[in-house]
Computed example of a mutant assay.
Amino acid sequence: MDYSLAAVKMLCSQLRDAKPTPSQNAASLGGVLFQRAWLQGVLVPFSGGGGDNCLVLDDGTGLLELGLTNDFALRQWKSGMFIRWLTCR
């Protein structure tokens, strides 16, 4: 992880348009290179195709399924919570 690259604040719709740059283990959007993106929105319930419940962030421009590590999965997440989320590419 290159911490000299900023964690850019973006919308879910913008994150979808980001292009991977495998040689740098990063992504770019509009000429901005990043490895981490900061998003914020509301948690909404979602039932996956396999019947597994997961958390989805809705920021008003799109939805982003959240990948939780075991530490975060143990917390009391509730639909309607407003959260800030930092994701790594």
Rank of each mutant, 00 (worst) to 15 (best):
G51F: 01
S47T: 15
G41T: 08
S47A: 08
W38T: 06
G41Y: 06
W77H: 09
A18G: 03
V42S: 12
V56N: 05
L11Q: 15
G48L: 08
G41M: 07
Q40N: 11
T21R: 09
D58F: 05
C54G: 12
P45Y: 06
L64G: 04
A37R: 00
S23P: 01
Q40I: 00
V56C: 10
S47W: 00
L64M: 13
M10K: 08
Q14F: 00
Q76H: 14
W38P: 00
A27G: 07
L68N: 03
Q24S: 14
S47I: 09
G60V: 05
A37I: 01
R16F: 09
Q35L: 01
Q76E: 12
R36G: 04
C88L: 08
I83N: 03
F72R: 14
G62F: 00
T87W: 01
P45D: 09
F82G: 07
L66I: 06
G62E: 01
V8W: 02
G60H: 06
D71Y: 05
L11G: 03
F34E: 00
W38I: 07
D58A: 08
K78T: 12
P22V: 05
G49P: 09
L86M: 10
S13R: 14
L15Q: 06
F46K: 13
G41P: 02
N53I: 03
G67K: 12
D58C: 03
S23V: 08
T69P: 00
G49C: 02
Q40S: 11
Q24M: 12
G50M: 10
T61C: 04
P45Q: 12
G50Q: 03
R36S: 02
N53L: 11
Y3R: 12
A37V: 13
G50R: 11
A73T: 07
L39P: 05
C12T: 12
C12G: 09
A73K: 15
T69H: 04
R16M: 13
G62S: 02
F82C: 02
V44G: 02
G60P: 03
G48Y: 02
S79Y: 14
G67H: 09
V42Q: 15
L39V: 01
M1Q: 11
F72N: 04
